[in-house]
């Protein structure tokens, strides 16, 4: 395992939804990379483009969504250039995906065992008995009793269904797993159990994770590195604890003062004024400027580039492009 070499590189990715009212650019020049064994988190509000990126990497976008530019590179292969056969190998063997709603991800009229075997037999030449064996082993891994192979999804609780979906994602032992809000529909205790288990499995099997959520506390706790998205763009990337302790982009700072904490003194939080923009007509210049309390004249005219503000810490904000302006770094106690 080479920790410094990227497993997945996304470069200048653009995705548009071609709507009757004109194209909506949901993902706009997004670049990031994920190293071997790393958990990279994409955080942002609903509609910021997180899931669209995940679908673009898997090449499962459907019209009217179209990839209009950029590159996705997985272990040296250009994913966006792959044809049908290559894609069939790439999906699940190289990258698997855990979808948000386990209820919709599982087929209600097939048993859990059949659904896991489906995946195994589709990609590997194994007999029915051997794949059932493997399925039973996968259930062991995610902490479900083997007897549940014969159960239908409706016989399982929400948490168990999500574990079954994770078992399917693990079936071919892929180097990268994309998890799109894997625990959003679950209660906190079950959420914690499942993430703990994923974390243990990751340590054991060494896969990387692209972790997508809107829950900032969860994101900071679970990820190694984080990209913060706003209106289709990545506005800041940094190590998880830097995003939490030393956020640089005004949007990230706002986000961090948007969720109350369980510890420390009670302070009044301010959140962020206004609402996320309509992606059909995004604001000019920096897309955050109408909500930004530090906006300057240039912010509505020119889009800031993502640039290094500290080692391994990048932010897209004009505050860091001008000399003589010291960005405000203090923020309320969380």
């Amino acid at each position: 395992m080479q920790p410094n070499e990227a497993l997945l590189t996304v470069d200048d990715l653009c995705v548009e939804y071609r709507t009757p009212r004109g194209p909506v650019r949901a993902v706009d020049h997004v670049s990031f990379s994920i190293a071997h064994g790393e958990v990279f988190g994409l955080a942002g509000e609903s509609g910021s483009g997180k899931s669209t990126i995940a679908h673009a990497i898997m090449r499962i976008l459907h019209p009217p969504a179209v990839i209009t530019g950029g590159h996705v590179n997985f272990s040296g292969d250009d994913v966006l250039e792959m044809d049908g056969d290559e894609l069939a190998r790439f999906r699940w063997r190289d990258v698997s995906m855990v979808f948000q709603s386990a209820m919709n991800a599982l087929n209600p009229v097939m048993t859990i065992g059949e659904q896991i075997c489906d995946v195994i037999q589709c990609h590997l030449r194994l007999s029915k008995a051997d794949s059932m064996d493997k399925a039973a082993h996968l259930l062991d891994l995610v902490g479900i009793e083997r007897s549940r192979l014969a159960a239908y999804p409706h016989q399982l609780s929400g948490g168990m269904r999500q574990r079954a979906v994770i078992a399917i994602a693990l079936a071919l032992n892929p180097p990268l797993m994309i998890m799109d809000e894997p625990t959003t529909a679950l209660d906190v205790v079950v959420q914690k159990e499942i993430l703990q288990q994923i974390s243990d499995l990751k340590d054991k099997m060494g896969f990387s994770i692209l972790f997508i959520t809107h829950d900032m506390s969860l994101m900071v706790e679970f990820s190694d590195r984080i990209g913060i998205m706003y209106a289709g763009e990545i506005v800041e990337t940094a190590d998880a604890h830097d995003v939490f302790n030393n956020p640089q982009h005004p949007y990230t700072r706002g986000l961090m003062s948007s969720f109350p904490s369980l510890v420390g003194p009670k302070v009044k939080l301010t959140g962020i004024p206004g609402s996320p923009p309509d992606m059909g007509k995004p604001p000019s210049g920096c897309r955050f400027h109408p909500r930004c309390d530090q906006a300057m004249a240039i912010c509505s005219l020119q889009r800031p580039a993502l640039r290094e503000v500290a080692p391994v810490h990048r932010a897209a904000c004009h505050l860091y492009e001008l000399t003589g302006v010291t960005p405000r770094t203090e923020r309320g106690t969380l």
Binding site: V188, V189, Q191, K192, E193, Q196, D215, M216, S217, L218, V220, E221, F222, A240, H241, F244, S261, L262, V263, G264, L334
Partner: peptide
């Protein structure tokens, strides 16, 4: 103990 808490990053809790 199940609530995600970024303040306890150094000593993650286990259920």
């Amino acid at each position: 103990s199940a609530v995600p808490n970024p303040h306890s990053l150094d000593q993650p809790t286990r259920l």
